[in-house]
Design a protein around this nucleic acid. Structure first.
Lengths: 223, 223
DNA sequence: TAGATTGTTAATCGATTAACAATC
DNA sequence: TAGATTGTTAATCGATTAACAATC
């Protein structure tokens, strides 16, 4: 059994994928899986999977493989799914609304407590059962309820200020959906950003490469 | 000047960040920047930035640094921003609608042509000026308009089928927002997925680590 | 010119892959 | 038992960092 002596971000980023894949296997009724089968289904090597799991002690059985149920359970534990994390949403525009209505917070171990906005039209209402408060009452709310994460879907101009307020009020993490790289200098607040445009531009690069395949030795006829 | 002999995905993933940072610098009126200054502002080393740009030939001036305008331009070119890429949206639920209304497709070099759905309530209408057609006319539309990318925000149950139809109809890329890992076996179709839950679970892991800091030599009092 | 900063090669570091003994 | 597959160490590969000559 190994202590998690500094797990690399590469491994951390794969953990949710393992969790997702194991959930799908579980739903398909698969009971046991080997590292090589799991690797094949995810485009990874068996070695890498065993090495990754070894960071946390290894949860398999020699000669048998891994029990899907218990491995999923273990990884969920590592990810902190059963820690009772809580979350609030800042900004109830189209995206905030979409996330509140559709994203399965509870499947990911988060309890969605409230949303905040400035618009008088939404303040006081509920979105999918989630109460919407005025942003001015954010600190008051955070003082009364322990909130793990603040989800930012505010306009880009308000992003930094809202991030600062969340950090000052003691959240542990900020899930940033604004296309702005907010800077939080507190060591005890983690910022995780979802940059749609980074994703689309990476895709743009990849499809652009395919359009001009191997222009190495061939004569360029484009200007 | 170096040919792009297999650029690593690590580099590709940083290109959009460079582009974003340079855009912000440009807006702030910054004209010139050195690799070390750019690195500091992005949490990268100067060496890494020079190495990254070197993959494409290097666009700096010795003793001076990089001109913000032209470096941004060059990186935009590499990313394929001025290639006239086109995109259609499949699924006009909350998320699809939010993206259509808010996401700046044109800033990222994409022209949003149309949206598709099954609901009779939206088919025939427009969302932010974008016409919504019935999904049954997808192939007909794609045959008439060259479409680079299909954006998937359909329910998870429809994800794979829609991905297959897009690939068969000749799109170059699929931008997948369903929480399902669609599999496309065609070599000429790239899938880029945005998995919200992977992002949140990674954040969950990170904040969970902070909650139990350095439980190495200390006595465990949790069970 | 002197100073600054890149382009580019070399050294280092870390992550992935390979190998195999342990063991179910 | 024989076969399979893990846990774990070692080897390899690739990415990051360091160094410095080139040059603006």
């Amino acid at each position: 059994m190994k202590r998690n002596t500094k797990v690399s971000t590469a491994v951390i980023r794969r953990l949710p994928r393992y969790y997702r894949q194991l959930s799908e296997l579980q739903e398909s009724g698969v009971v046991r899986i080997s590292s090589s089968a799991l690797g094949k289904s995810m485009g990874l090597t068996a070695s890498q999977i065993r090495q990754d799991l070894f960071c946390f002690g290894g949860f398999g059985q020699q000669g048998y493989g891994y029990k899907v149920d218990s491995l999923k359970e273990e990884i969920g534990e590592i990810l902190g799914i059963s820690r009772g994390h809580t979350i609030v949403v800042l900004g109830t525009g189209n995206l905030g609304r979409a996330l509140i209505k559709n994203f399965k917070f509870s499947s990911n171990g988060f309890h969605l407590l409230a949303a905040f906005d400035v618009s008088e039209q939404v303040v006081g209402t509920q979105i999918a059962g989630v109460p919407v408060y005025h942003i001015s009452s954010l600190e008051e709310f955070l003082a009364q309820h322990p909130v793990s994460v603040g989800l930012l879907t505010v306009p880009i101009a308000a992003a930094q200020e809202m991030g600062d307020r969340l950090a000052a009020a003691g959240v542990k993490g900020i899930w940033n959906f604004t296309n702005y790289e907010i800077s939080v200098n507190r060591k005890d607040v983690v910022v995780e950003s979802v940059h749609f445009s980074d994703s689309l531009l990476a895709l743009s690069y990849m499809i652009s490469q395919q359009e001009e395949p191997e222009s190495q030795d061939t004569e360029e006829d484009t200007l």
